[in-house]
Design a protein around this nucleic acid. Structure first.
Lengths: 102, 102
DNA sequence: GTGATATAAAACCATCAAGTTAAATAACTG
DNA sequence: CAGTTATTTAACTTGATGGTTTTATATCAC
């Protein structure tokens, strides 16, 4: 699943969508609004995110609200954690960043 | 830079190359050996990794030894860290939900 | 200089990704 | 039912990816 996760994260539009969803559920049109691209284009991005397991979608009348599903992000982070030894000096910084967020 | 980093990590061959390089410097042919693909194909993967800043290359006679350069991995991890409390929170929510059901 | 080794570059092909517009589907509203 | 809103699907274009084989470049060893 790492393939799909990293591929999904490689696109700035999709990362922005995830950032928006971190604030809470949103509909397709709400997600599409900030972008200078057609709504079907955003729908495609959502399909990529859904296939990667990064979002789930509900049903509310005509709307298909999207929710963040962060589990693949955890897996990706775990993979990256295997390399933390290689940035030891800067790891201290990341460590305090994480501590600060708790 | 996140675009290039995540795109580079989306390929299993490239992740395997990084895993190998985490053990130490290696030449192109050493890196290519385990894979059922031509050497030029591996060279292309190395170019992708180099452009993403994930490896650097030296010179040793005809050889171009590759080294891991983990800084982009740190950046990627930092981006992901922004979601860490999100998933921890949702696990906690799930956890209390489950507790409430007992 | 010749030949062998290590790697990169070129040309090519098939597939996929990201966008478009236009049409189809689903569900609400009057 | 007709019309509107929300979203998906289809068909298409363009450009990037991942692989191939063949050719070129660089360096060593003789």
């Amino acid at each position: 699943m790492l393939d799909a996760t990293f591929a999904a994260l490689a696109d700035p539009t999709r990362r922005a969508i995830l950032a928006r969803l971190a604030q809470g559920e949103a509909t397709v049109s709400e997600l599409a609004a900030p972008f200078a691209m057609s709504q079907p284009a955003v729908s495609k991005h959502l399909k990529v995110l859904e296939k990667a397991g990064l979002i789930t979608r509900g049903r509310d009348a005509q709307r298909r609200p999207c929710r963040l599903a962060a589990e693949p992000l955890r897996e990706a982070t775990e993979w990256l954690a295997g390399y933390r030894d290689y940035w030891e000096e800067s790891f201290q910084r990341l460590d305090s960043l994480l501590r600060g967020m708790e």
